[in-house]
């Protein structure tokens, strides 16, 4: 079933249009930076962006920092929201289930497809950003190392390892979003409602994070540690928030996947 879902994902025009749209923003920013040469003041704007002007090879990180907090969650919520409700709306859900495909297997396959989608998006963004960064913003001699936030230098293998770790972390965050959207998708009849439900959770979480009165809730909000991946680029790595983030995302995944499973496996499929 996983294979079938992947085939559907890769053959869908929407997958590629979405990825292209996500990819457009970092490209636009790179062009603007290259043309104007004006970087954000240190400490403001998206992470890494001020460092990018001196070194284009860092641009993939800056691009991910732009895309991961907002675009990717929305795209993941839409894709995962489609999972059950979308099949229901297309009238295919009943035919999938009577092939028969087990309901649990279907959920797992859908989840895997969503994560592959997110990975694909991230890889496309990273590769384009690297190409665009190097060609438009120039390249420092890589062997001299790349600056961390802490002012020390990273060797290329270190940089690659930390970038991969941050990608893994971002994927785990997307898994949390996917779990919520998947649960919504088993709950409502239209994919749009499911996606909006998941996005509403993210917005509410972001909003509450800005509110001091909600500080008791902060450690439990899903977006609380999303940007902790930047801590991977400190020297030494600042693990505390990252580990908390991992734990929190796993908790969200467990709770919402469990709820999605419990709801879907006992649901009357009447569409």
């Amino acid at each position: 079933m996983i294979r079938v879902e992947l085939v559907k994902l890769l053959r869908s025009r929407r997958t590629w249009v979405t990825i292209a749209l996500i990819d457009a923003l970092p490209v636009l920013v790179a062009i603007l930076l290259a043309v104007t040469g004006v970087g954000p003041r240190p400490g403001s704007g998206p992470a890494f962006l001020s460092a990018v002007l001196t070194d284009g090879t860092l641009y993939p990180l800056a691009a991910l920092a732009m895309v991961v907090p907002l675009f990717l969650p929305v795209a993941v919520a839409v894709t995962a929201g489609e999972a059950v409700a979308g099949e229901g709306q297309a009238g295919t859900l009943r035919y999938v289930l009577i092939r028969p495909v087990g309901r649990t297997r279907l959920l797992v396959a859908k989840l895997v497809a969503v994560i592959v989608f997110a990975l694909l998006a991230v890889v496309v963004v990273a590769v384009t950003a690297y190409v665009v960064g190097v060609t438009l913003l120039g390249q420092q001699d890589v062997t001299t190392g790349t600056a961390t936030f802490s002012g020390t230098s990273l060797t290329t293998p270190e940089l690659v390892a930390r970038t991969l770790m941050s990608l893994g972390y971002a994927m785990l965050c997307m898994l949390g979003v996917a779990a919520i959207a998947l649960f919504c998708s088993t709950l409502v009849d239209t994919p749009l409602a499911a996606a909006l439900g998941a996005i509403a959770v993210l917005i509410a979480s972001t909003l509450l994070l800005t509110l001091d009165a909600a500080s008791a809730l902060h450690p439990w909000l899903i977006t609380r540690y999303w940007l902790a991946f930047t801590d991977l680029f400190r020297d030494p790595i600042f693990w505390r928030d990252i580990l908390r983030g991992v734990g929190l995302q796993l908790l969200y995944v467990a709770v919402f996947l469990g709820a999605a499973w419990a709801n879907f496996t006992t649901k009357d499929v009447t569409r």
Binding site: K8, S12, R13, A90, G91, T92, L93, R94, Y95, I98
Partner: peptide
């Protein structure tokens, strides 16, 4: 078992 339930369903695209 082969079945047709309440109209056909297919992936439109």
């Amino acid at each position: 078992v082969g079945a047709l339930v309440e109209g056909p369903g297919a992936y439109d695209q």
